[in-house]
Simulated scan of single mutants.
Amino acid sequence: MTEALIFDMDGTMIDSMGHHAQSWLVFAKKHGLRIEIDDLMRRTTGRTGAECMRELFQRDLANDEAWALIAEKEQLYRERFGPVFAEVAGFKAFYAQALAHGLKLGMGTAGDRHNIAFVLSHLQLAPPPRAIVGGDEGHPGKPEPAIFLEVARQLNASAGGCIVFEDAPFGIEAARRAGMLAVAICSSHTPDQLAGPHVIAAVRDYHELLNSNFLETLHVATS
């Protein structure tokens, strides 16, 4: 029985990954670092801000320094993405239908509270997700399952009753480690890159899920 849907944020709810990549390039240049952006994105997408900065600088930064650096980088991202903000196509319609089906909805992201507030202010979801867990709350980033497990705990849902929506390999793996099913949102990776025995669908966007009546195929737990 499906109790809850848990959504990653960047690349899953919103079409933001290209803007994150651009902000990493600007940030690295400002700090005199040379990076290969595809490699950096592969190593960091789904990890917390502090983990990302330690990966970028390749040293054990103190938490205060790491979070100050990520605040600088994420400000660059918001300045670039804000004027052209876009959801992953069909997300809000899918979210509304999921609510109508009686599902609990949560959000589990490595993004920090500032990016979460930025996204929710643009999406204007009514109501917002019942449980929201971010990457600056002390949990290890993906592929560790802690963020998704905490969302499930706050939703009072069993891990086996949750379906995770993810766009990145680390997030897909985190869902597997959490004992949850997953839907691959292929906005920034191919279906092959997001494959797994627990992945029950791989789609380009939410219109594909709506058009295939995905929600109607679920056996929704009633409380």
Rank of each mutant, 00 (worst) to 15 (best):
4 A>Y: 01
7 F>C: 12
10 D>E: 00
10 D>K: 03
12 T>N: 03
15 D>P: 01
17 M>Q: 11
22 Q>V: 11
24 W>E: 02
26 V>Y: 00
27 F>P: 03
30 K>A: 15
31 H>T: 07
35 I>L: 11
37 I>V: 15
42 R>T: 12
46 G>P: 00
46 G>W: 01
48 T>H: 03
48 T>G: 04
51 E>N: 09
51 E>W: 03
51 E>G: 12
51 E>M: 11
53 M>S: 11
63 N>W: 14
66 A>S: 08
70 I>Q: 08
75 Q>W: 02
75 Q>R: 15
85 F>V: 11
88 V>W: 04
90 G>V: 04
94 F>H: 02
94 F>W: 01
97 Q>S: 12
99 L>A: 13
100 A>K: 15
103 L>M: 09
103 L>D: 05
107 M>P: 02
108 G>H: 04
112 D>N: 15
115 N>I: 14
117 A>Q: 12
119 V>I: 07
121 S>N: 15
127 P>G: 09
127 P>K: 11
128 P>S: 07
129 P>L: 10
139 H>D: 06
145 P>K: 12
146 A>G: 08
151 V>W: 05
153 R>V: 05
154 Q>M: 07
154 Q>W: 00
158 S>V: 03
160 G>E: 10
163 I>Q: 02
163 I>C: 08
165 F>N: 04
165 F>I: 04
166 E>S: 13
166 E>V: 13
174 A>H: 06
179 G>I: 06
180 M>T: 10
181 L>P: 00
183 V>G: 05
185 I>M: 04
192 D>A: 15
192 D>T: 14
195 A>S: 13
197 P>C: 14
198 H>D: 09
200 I>D: 07
200 I>N: 00
201 A>T: 00
201 A>Q: 10
203 V>A: 04
206 Y>G: 01
207 H>A: 09
207 H>D: 07
209 L>D: 01
209 L>K: 06
216 E>F: 06
217 T>C: 10
218 L>E: 00
219 H>T: 14
